[in-house]
Every structure is written in structure tokens, then in C-alpha cells.
Design a binder for these strands. Structure first.
Lengths: 192, 192
DNA sequence: CACAAAATAGACAGACCTGTCTATTTTCTT
DNA sequence: AAGAAAATAGACAGGTCTGTCTATTTTGTG
């Protein structure tokens, strides 16, 4: 869209550093100066690539959105052809994510929380990610023969988001298995 | 616990104002000065009642925790004696909450998000609230004849937290009904 | 009334924040 | 090698933040 979207080594490095710090400490808690110091980049370089901190945050979220969904899709593809197994593979992916080093919840949920005004650009960017995941879930539900695929996908989305919060607060992966088990039950009901 | 816990008009007024602003804009986004200006109170009055902003946030969350749970319990009691209806009344309460003026998600989820370090006092305070709600849910599940009440309560907790996020982002109450319908199905399965 | 406790305004410190500007150096391309 | 583009350090502005301090006034109580 904008010229700032063109990839460049400095830009990528800034986004990677920003992502790491934002995810660890929060969007408001991390200042521009800290990102610059950690990345070893001059301030004007950042402001030549991004118009503002807000644009940097949005760029980081959009990049992360792509990576996330690709990672989920890869897990689904690796699960084979059985539609039920493919759907449940999402929950296996979630469990692996919960157990990953430095897991601190969902960056998008946290963005929704830190920018609670639904009209805020960051809030909306974060929500678009959730909608994209729901859309992918719906396709998996349809393939698995669910009667009301959209409704089931939305419910599975609730389970996943709830599990993220529980896993973040408890530092455990157990919520993923609860969500998975419930998803399996719901799928059975919806396909009957 | 501490002397600061003693109630006083000024203290209560500060906490009410702080709650309103924190909930509307976020914990980090709202500064002490804004709370003081809005409440019409001198800075030293605040710091005589609270050792720090962090303590103020924790005090506000703890107070809100009590009010929340009492409000839920009242709704459950008003639902009568049927155990299933009592459990589902929680979801009716949630729907009413989602539709309330100025709804901006869950202050506790947002506290978990803004203070993502699980060791942070604010993070832990917020999680204690969620645990208390889960405990109450478990009692309702037990009364409703669920085989594994704790497991069911945890799953219902996932649904509720997920619904909160969806309702916040979409400004709708629909997620509450999705969660309620799913809860009814799960209860039937668990009581069979 | 008199005394003590609570609250007040407002200055202040020291740090941090985002974003701008300039002058210089490095890097890339031709 | 030469010119253009990108990146650099670092100062700077103007504002915000939390928390402290003082001197004064209000409030509540015996």
C-alpha cells in the first residue's frame, strides 16, 4: 500500500526487535528509544520507515498475523486429509504455542486490551487478525461436515481465546487440551 | 490488611474515578494527574491513601472483583432453584453486561494483558479474580449434576473469556448467546 | 473554642515520552 | 571514481509521567 511497506533489512530488523519487546512488555510500556537501543538503529532510520509508533505497531501486527496463520495452516496440512483431524490439529498447534519459550498470551488480544477503544486503528488491526482466523476455522468446520459451520467456528474461536488467557495466566498448556476435547465433542454434535 | 484498606469518602471517590478512567482508556494510558483532575482531589490526598499507582490499580481491581461476583450471584439467586437454570443465568448476566453502556471488555483480562509478566502483582491480582469466578462456576456445575464439575467449569470459563473478547471487539452481545448455547449442550453431555 | 487530623494548591525533581532537525558519515549504484 | 541514497549521532522541543515536599486551609472532635 504505502512506500513504507517495501521490505528492507533495516526495516525488517526494526520490526523484529519491536515485536520482541512489544510482546514481552507491552505496547505502551516499550518506548521508541528502547527499540532503537536494542536494535542498534538510529532514530531517524525508524522515522524514515514508519510515520509513527502507531504505524510501527500496526505493521508489526500485520506481519505477525501472516506468520501466525501460515504456521497454523502448515500444521493443518501436516495433519493429513481427514477433516476431523485437520480441525483438531489447530488445537494441537495451540498447545505447542502455549508451551513455547517466552509465551505471554496473544499479542492481538493484548492489543485489543491496551487500545480498548474499538475505533482505534490498532484495535481494529488486531481484530482483523481474529476474523481471519475465524474464517479459516469456518472452512475447516465446513470440510468436517458441520451443519452450521460459521456458528461452530465462532464457538471454537471463543474456546481458543479463552484458553490463551488461561494459559498465559497459569503458565500451563492444559487449557489447550480442555479446548481440544470440547472442540471434539462439539464437532461430533454438529456433524450428527 | 493495610491501613489503606480503611474506607473513607475521599478514598472511595478516588477509586471510583480511577476505575472509570482505567476501564475506559487503560491502566498505563491514564495518568495520576488525570485521575486527580477528574476527581477534584489533591495529589497528596491520593498518596496518603495509596502508596503508589500500582497499589491504586490493585485496590480498584479487588473492589471490582467483589462487586462483580456479588452481581453474578444476585443474578443466579434470582434465577430460582433449578440447578441448570442457575448455571445458565450466569450467561444471561454476561449478555446483560455485554450490552451495558460503555462496555469495553473485561478489566481483568485487560490487566493481564497490560501487565503480561505473570509475576507482576497486578497480573496476579487480575488472575485471582478469574480463579474466584471459576470456583463459583464449579459449585454451580456440581449442583447441576456434572460428572467432572471442575473440568466443565474450566471449559465454561474459556467460553466466557472468549465471548468477552469477541463482544468487546465487535460491540455486540451475540457471543454471550453462543456461549450460553454451548454451555447448555456441554451441561447436557456432562450430566448424562 | 481549641486542638488535631485531613485535605489543599502548587512547586519541584528526575525521568521518560514521541517526534523533529541538522550535520556528518556510510553505503549503494552507475 | 562520483554522485545519490540511506543511515548515523546527537541535540532539541514540548510534553508527560510518578512521586515528594512545603506551607496553608479546611474539617472534624473533644
Amino acid at each position: 500500500m504505502s512506500a513504507a511497506d517495501i521490505s528492507s533489512p533495516k526495516r525488517d530488523h526494526l520490526m523484529a526487535t519491536a515485536w520482541r519487546l512489544f510482546y514481552r512488555d507491552g505496547y505502551r510500556a516499550v518506548g521508541i528509544d528502547m527499540i532503537l537501543a536494542e536494535a542498534g538503529v538510529a532514530k531517524m532510520t525508524l522515522y524514515n520507515h514508519f510515520a509513527s509508533k502507531e504505524e510501527l505497531i500496526i505493521a508489526v501486527l500485520e506481519k505477525r498475523d501472516c506468520e501466525f496463520r501460515q504456521s497454523i495452516i502448515a500444521k493443518v496440512e501436516a495433519a493429513g486429509l481427514d477433516p476431523e483431524q485437520r480441525l483438531l490439529a489447530v488445537f494441537d498447534w495451540v498447545e505447542g504455542w502455549f508451551g513455547s519459550e517466552g509465551f505471554r498470551g496473544c499479542a492481538f488480544i493484548r492489543a485489543l486490551s491496551e487500545y480498548p477503544d474499538p475505533a482505534h486503528p490498532i484495535h481494529q488491526t488486531a481484530w482483523h487478525h481474529k476474523l481471519a482466523v475465524l474464517s479459516a476455522l469456518k472452512d475447516l468446520c465446513t470440510a468436517a461436515g458441520a451443519k452450521d459451520a460459521e456458528s461452530l467456528a465462532n464457538t471454537l474461536g471463543l474456546l481458543i481465546d479463552g484458553a490463551i488467557i488461561a494459559a498465559h495466566a497459569t503458565c500451563t498448556t492444559a487449557p489447550a487440551r480442555s479446548a481440544r476435547a470440547t472442540a471434539a465433542s462439539l464437532l461430533k454434535l454438529a456433524a450428527a
